[in-house]
């Protein structure tokens, strides 16, 4: 059974389709864990009307299904606590500043 950390690391491959930052550094992933072959992710979006939501969910599923030992993915979209810019990592902040967005 894969430990949660590698799954979180794997999710750094998933880019936000609108900004040059991955969803982990953007602070969208609240929790990821494995139960046997099932990966369970709690994640949020920066806005409830996120136009990229479908693409992000699709990429998260595809990414986790590529991880060894994972054959099922359950994604819970959660709104509590709400996302704020404070949830970004230093790397995420840096990526967006390089791109020209003040965070």
């Amino acid at each position: 059974m894969p430990a949660p950390e590698p799954l979180l690391e794997a999710l750094r491959e998933v880019q936000d389709p609108e900004m040059p930052v991955n969803i982990v550094d953007l602070g969208l992933v609240y929790r990821v864990r494995a139960q046997e072959a099932r990966a369970i992710v709690d994640l949020t979006f920066t806005a409830m009307g996120c136009p990229a939501a479908d693409f992000i969910l699709e990429d998260v599923r595809e990414c986790l299904l590529r991880q060894p030992g994972i054959s099922e993915v359950v994604v819970n979209v959660v709104w509590d606590p709400p996302w704020t810019a404070a949830r970004m990592t230093q790397d995420g902040r840096h990526a967006l500043e390089m791109w020209g967005l003040a965070v």
Partner: peptide
Amino acid sequence: NKVMLEENFHLRN
């Protein structure tokens, strides 16, 4: 700068 990334999003759709 930002336009290019947004066009990528349209392409993705």
